[in-house]
Amino acid sequence: MALAPETTAPAVEVRDLHKRYGSLEAVAGIDFEVGAGETFGFLGPNGAGKSTTISILCTLVDPTGGAARVAGYDVVRQRSDVRRNIGLVFQDTTLDLYLTAAQNLRFHAELYGVPRGLVDERLHKVLEMVGLWDRRDSRVNTFSGGMKRRLEIARGLLHSPRVLFLDEPTVGLDPQTRSSIWSYIHELRQQEDITIFLTTHYMDEAENCDRIAIMSQGRIVVLDTPEALKASVGKDRVQITTDDDPAAMRALDERFGVEAAVHDGAVTISVADGEQFVPRLFAELGVPIRSVSVARPTLDDVFLTYTGRTIADAEASGMDRLRSNPMLAARARR
């Protein structure tokens, strides 16, 4: 019997992981660790190897090289132990649409062996958390896309996993529903001791993670906090409109030592920390300011800097890769 690993151990530990499908190297040697309690994101276009990696970590696919441990257990040799300690939310729905929400959860509780006396309480708790308690006796085929996804998240949490895997948790949902899913995920972090591992190809969603790994063509290109990644790319862009632009530009040069230029009819400067700079600007510029805007570098800029492509371009060629490889395409469809 495997001893329960210490809780301070990393939630996910990956060493030189490889996965090869024929001639295609879907995962080409990656290393990383995810700390307990962290929200960790895999960002990258379709076909970058995110889903393959998550499938290996969930014990659904065997790696062709390297090793991975989840919740302290080896994903190849201690499959059952891994499975007991993870919750899964896949890209495609895996609910039984003809059962009610509660029936789907009960099925899961039985299959995972949740102790009988705890099922009712836990079921209430997770359905309450995702706002579906009132709909517990409705059949899932009456649910909207967002409700189904929330129900899947509730089900993934039912057995108190140490790590929750969310593979593209908001794909195919409208922006409003996407942001509501995120507020549930934030709430979840407040209520449970859980590590969240997610993949996404939405740049704005990656901002919700504590750390992000950007994946491209089976490799991790860079791994850091969203803030650090953006800082590594460049400075914030501050644009102001004033009563007297030439005077403002002179003042910027003399008092702040920054060079300004006029773009889009506004005085534009680049500074390391735009938000902290703005209050000083108001206090010390000496020219009345009419409007101000601060634009941060986006993760799109980060992706472009590190991979040389925009994520949209990468997405397009990623799909070509899929199409040219029938086996991967079949997997992607499934």
Binding site: R84, S160, H186
Partner: peptide, 23 residues
């Protein structure tokens, strides 16, 4: 700057942590 901080609701009192289930 519409960057939402992770754990934006941190200001609110943290609700009681759920008792984990051991399978």
């Amino acid at each position: 700057t519409t960057v939402s901080e992770p754990g934006a609701a941190a200001g609110a009192p943290a609700p009681a942590r759920a008792t984990p289930i051991h399978l």
